[in-house]
Structure formats: C-alpha cells, structure tokens
C-alpha cells in the first residue's frame, strides 16, 4: 500500500447511493409508512380514512380465516422449500461434480423464465381431472382420476409442486455458484484419502456451502411466503379455503372487499413474522460467517 493518505470518499459515495436510496424511499419506504397508517384506520378507498386504533388488529386476531390462511401458508412453505431446496441441492451437486455444460445450466433455468401466470395455466390444463394429460396417463395405468386442484388434500401439494418445478433450476444455479467457491483441492485431497461422493458431499460441500445455503433459504422462504400468482390462476384459494394463503387473503380483503385498513393490518403482521423468521434463520445458520475464511 502506498503511504499517501486515503481520500475521503464518503461524500462521493452518497451521490452514488442516491438513486437507490430515492427509489427505496419512494417505492418502499413511503408505501410502507402509509401501510402502517392505513392499518390503524377504516380506509376502504372510497371514504376518508379515520383513525380506529387497534380495532383492525383485534379483529384480525379473532378472525379464524386469518389464522387458517397462516396455517395454509406455513404448510405451503414447508412443502415448497423442503422439496425445492433438496432437489436444487441434488441438481447443483450433479452440475458441480459431473458436468459443466453451459447448455445444461441454461436449460435448468428455462422454467424460471416462463411467467408465473403461464406456468399456472400450463399446469392447470396438464393436471385437469377430465381433460388433463396427467390424468389420462393415470387412467391408462388403471388409476382413478385425481382432482389435483379440486381435492382439498391434493390442492396445496399440487401448487407447491408446480412452484418447485418452476424455481428449482434458479435455486440450483445459486447453490451451484456457491459450490464453485469451494476450493477444488479439498475434493482432490478427499479423493486421495478414499472418500466417496456422498462422503465428500456431507463432509465438504454442505458445511462450506452453509452461508450461501442460508442466504438461498432466507430469500426463497420470503418468496415462498409471498406465493400468490399460481394460486390466483389455478385454485383461487379453494376448495373451501384449502389454498387460501396469506397473500390471497390480503388480496381479497384489499381488492375484492376493499377493506384497505384490515388488509394493511394483515400485511404488517406478515412483515413482522417474516422479519422474525429471517432473524432466527440467519442466527441459526451463522450466515454471516464462512468456514472458508
């Protein structure tokens, strides 16, 4: 390093940060503050909002539909994150250890590039009970038809499966990028010591991937809590609120019933829960520290 006194870049830094900060303030900060305000009013878009104190929150905690939607969302997150992360880990290790083909990597991303509404429609037709290809296939093998979207036990696993299909490639790519940072010599050393692929995966890949895995888990969990489009296209929350996730609940309250205050209260609760879950996850996985350092 040279001996000259480092220039103070902090003033210049603000100029570079300004576009992002302004965007954040206008599109996130301000709406969020408005949201907090609406959550303590009786705003319904057509009236002038007036302060009602904690009434919306009290009503929300007594609303069985709200709790049901929380449960339903949790069930979805477990199904979706579980299957998506496991599959993505598998796919990423295969890419990492077996092939480095760029074509293959690009292909994995394809489902992620398709708009969610298109994915919803595509699977709605494929899985339809009467006209769908999947049920024709089941029928050929002598099984009874399954109402993937209309049977209350199947509806949520089906939606979770569709989103797993859509996002596995993307998640796998993130994990794969993380795996590329693991020094190759560790694997070579392990191979000389006679470790098999599974042993190397458990002993090298997983522990060293932890910070990346933690980030991927947090990001995909937040995304998963925000499941909306697939449900809005396919089941619309049905049958009998079996897929009425929290976002759909908020959407219904806000844009169908125009209970803006109530919907804002539900949204604030969701934000708090997500913040809490993220904090717990980051702590448990010690995401800010890497074992490579």
């Amino acid at each position: 390093m040279s001996a000259t006194k480092p220039r103070d870049d902090r003033r210049a830094a603000w100029w570079f940060l300004a576009p992002v900060l302004v965007g954040f303030a206008v599109f996130y900060g301000y709406p969020a503050a408005r949201g907090v305000w609406y959550s303590v009013t009786d705003y319904n878009m057509l009236n002038t909002a007036s302060y009602v104190g904690t009434e919306n929150y009290a009503k929300l905690f007594a609303d069985e539909k709200f709790w049901n939607s929380m449960l339903v969302t949790a069930w979805y997150v477990v199904l979706n994150i579980g299957s998506q992360t496991l599959l993505a880990l598998g796919v990423a290790s295969l890419m990492h250890r077996l092939t480095r083909s760029v074509v293959l990597r690009a292909t994995l991303l394809l489902p992620w590039l398709v708009p969610n509404v298109t994915i919803g429609l595509l699977w709605m037709w494929l899985l339809d009970t009467n006209l769908g290809f999947v049920n024709q296939l089941l029928h050929t093998f002598g099984f009874d038809p399954v109402g993937f979207f209309t049977d209350e036990t199947w509806a949520m696993p089906t939606v979770a499966g569709i989103n797993t299909w859509a996002y596995t490639g993307y998640t796998a790519l993130l994990l794969y990028a993380g795996m590329l940072q693991i020094p190759q010599y560790l694997y070579e050393g392990a191979a000389i010591d006679g470790a098999g692929e599974w042993r190397m995966f458990r002993g090298i890949t997983l522990p060293l991937l932890r910070p990346v895995l933690a980030l991927v888990l947090v990001v995909s969990m937040i995304g998963s809590f925000q499941i909306f489009d697939t449900i809005a296209v396919t089941t619309k929350g049905g049958p009998v609120s079996a897929t009425q996730v929290i976002y759909y609940f908020i959407y219904q309250q806000a844009f169908k019933y125009f209970h803006m205050g109530y919907a804002a209260a539900a949204a604030i609760c969701l934000a708090l829960i997500l913040g809490l879950l993220t904090a717990i996850q980051m702590r448990m996985l010690r995401a800010s520290r890497s074992d490579l350092a």
Binding site: T129, G147, F149, D151, P239
Partner: peptide, 17 residues
C-alpha cells in the same frame, strides 16, 4: 362429477370436449 374430482376448466370447455 364429484367436486373433488371435478375439472377446474369451464363447463363449456368440458361440453365441447
């Protein structure tokens, strides 16, 4: 069709099929 085995597609698509 029973509701849990019903189609999510509109009835006119099913009639047409």
């Amino acid at each position: 069709p029973a509701l849990d085995k019903a189609s999510t597609l509109s009835r006119d698509s099913l009639l047409n099929a």
